[in-house]
Design a protein around this nucleic acid. Structure first.
Lengths: 343, 343
DNA sequence: CATGCTTCTGTGAGCGTTCACAGTAGAGAA
DNA sequence: TTCTCTACTGTGAACGCTCACAGAAGCATG
């Protein structure tokens, strides 16, 4: 048995040590730790001093054992992970959630459920009560994990409206349809009339809603629908590239294209460049997300900003409320058109 | 008190329930749970059946309370976070670590320590034993968190060799110097002689080592050092752009540039494009990382691949070994030149 | 004076596990 | 037989905390 020579972790002080130091009982220390109700100012002061002196930090395992809560939440990714990790939005969301939770002193457990095996393992882990709630990042319909968690009564907040999960699950989303409407109206206002669209996957809310907004505005403007102007991607850069090529082939007279994500829009720009079309002179390009990809693109993308900081904050707020016993809630946040050089 | 109508979390089965179901004692169940030594095949079988039947999952809080281990590790980011979250490498690393840990059934806690306050909070959290060890992503020297953790004897593995942390801390890194040497030799082999460099921050190992490799190879080739060909960036895209502008101003006859990260190289490409220099005809550009940014760039970047999957695996392996009582270790992994269109 | 209420404090029990220890049974050796 | 050794099993005692409860003290009210 070798003892580390660099420090060595000695036994941390317990609530007993603090109580002894402060000259009070365990109960009083515990009360101070949990809000300080029914504690005299003198005792309050003595306990706080003792905590500072001993360097006491509550043992969360002991606390969780008795309270049944774990005081931690999971951040669950059920998609094939490459896509999310490629997507800069994901970063912003993860960072925002971590920070919002840190403000409540709640650690975030990152969980990836890509394969069937992992799915099972993680579902068991969660339903066993190892986290109090789950922030879910999975937009595809028919996600078995989400369904299982919902049935098990685990507090759950999805990012984006989950398709096919009934209405009993909380979610926070940007107003996809409204954002799409803004972008298409913007393109119309520039005099464009042959406006194409590269949608997201049509089993995701972003895919469906943004397409719906596009169709609505064109219909309202009295422009006949033309299915040659509509193609679908999967939010990846490569799919944007492929989509643009298909659009150019099907509708060579296209003078604008609304792309349902900035990353796909990067691909679109690349394809247009290769095809010798100038942006925005020949074809205006509008993205969606306002991710770092938007400013990294050349030309910088006009896009629809999703309020990611607000989204992550709201997800955490709604989740904590639900853990606290409140009913599920849906939050829809407004988007904003950001004009840059691509339109 | 409202009971959720959608499932409701009922009290999970305990080791007692399993023991009763299997007709054995708690002790036997516990032994099965922990490797099954000194358990008869019959009991083994009965316990496993009972676990399946009851859906038992061990309560980690109770276990941690007595073992003193938490069976979780932290992933700690001490930098101003924007940079890391902007950097695609970070994603790959985070994903790799999460997966490698999942294979050991160990959850990963994501921790961000950007501000001074967060730093204090997190240090307390960690030293209180809430995680068994820490995967540290912070390359700058003089990081107070890293130093405190090291002194507190918390098992720690850094990504990249930490500067100024003594030699007693484990780390896993790609062979920065060797990678840089490969790239510069490659540029030389193309006949380039006026080779510039955009380094990383010079208080990071990647900044120092890659520059050292560059200087070594040029010296070996008998090319005199020219400080007009050396500028520093901070790994951000914008700093690459600024760096390239400075290089073009200081050394207009530059015919190649080695950039210490792909993200900076993207910026370099943008600046060169604006300046009307063709890549690779006029100026060859070599990156470092082989991150998604490399293939996203136009033209696709020739770069040095860092073996991120191996790095994350090794970080986890070394950390677990250290938690298990082994001494700190340093692991250096080879890099690989990936030739694309920018050279 | 008794009674009740409010504010505060200490104590015992117990959360679900693991660990140390004390057994038991059976086999083999003296 | 008796003893030892091995393989296995059960039990009490923790781990550090919160919770329920019992009480004490102070003060107003009947």
């Amino acid at each position: 048995m070798t003892m580390s020579h660099t420090g060595g972790r000695r036994k941390p002080p317990t609530i007993h040590d603090v109580a002894r130091e402060a000259g009070v009982s365990r109960g009083t220390v515990s009360r101070v730790l949990n809000g300080g109700h029914y504690v005299s100012p003198a005792a309050q002061e003595a306990v706080n001093a003792a905590i500072r002196k001993t360097g006491y930090v509550v043992n969360r395992h002991a606390r969780s054992l008795i309270t049944g809560r774990s005081d931690s939440v999971g951040f669950l990714l059920t998609e094939p992970q490459e896509r999310f990790f490629e997507d800069p939005n994901f970063n912003v969301l993860l960072r925002g959630c971590t920070q919002a939770l840190a403000a409540h002193d709640i650690p975030l457990l990152l969980m990836l459920a890509g394969t069937e095996d992992e799915r099972r393992r993680i579902t068991r882990y969660i339903t066993a009560g190892h986290v109090d709630g789950v922030l879910l990042v999975s937009s595809h319909s028919g996600d078995p994990v989400a369904e299982e968690l919902r049935e098990a009564g685990v507090p759950l907040v999805a990012c984006g409206k989950p398709i096919g999960l009934g209405s009993k699950v909380s979610y926070v989303a940007a107003d996809d349809r409204d954002g799409a409407r803004d972008m298409v109206r913007h393109l119309l206002s520039l005099g464009r009339r042959r406006i194409g669209v590269v949608t997201g996957p049509l089993d995701t809310p972003g895919g469906v809603e943004r397409l719906a907004g596009y169709r609505e505005v064109l219909a309202e403007a009295g422009i006949a629908a033309d299915e040659r102007l509509v193609v679908s991607g999967d939010y990846s850069r490569a799919s944007g590239e492929a989509g643009a090529e298909r659009l150019l082939a099907q509708a060579p007279d296209m003078d604008a294209v609304f792309v349902a994500s900035d990353l796909m829009a990067q691909g679109v720009l690349a394809a247009l460049h290769r095809a010798g079309r100038r942006v925005p002179e020949d074809i205006a390009v509008g993205g969606f997300d306002d991710s770092p990809a938007a400013t990294a693109a050349a030309p910088a993308l006009t896009t629809i900003r999703q309020p990611w900081d607000r989204i992550s904050n709201e997800m955490v707020r709604v989740l904590l409320a639900q853990i606290g016993g409140e009913d599920p809630a849906a939050v829809i946040l407004p988007t904003e058109l950001v004009r840059r050089d691509s339109t």
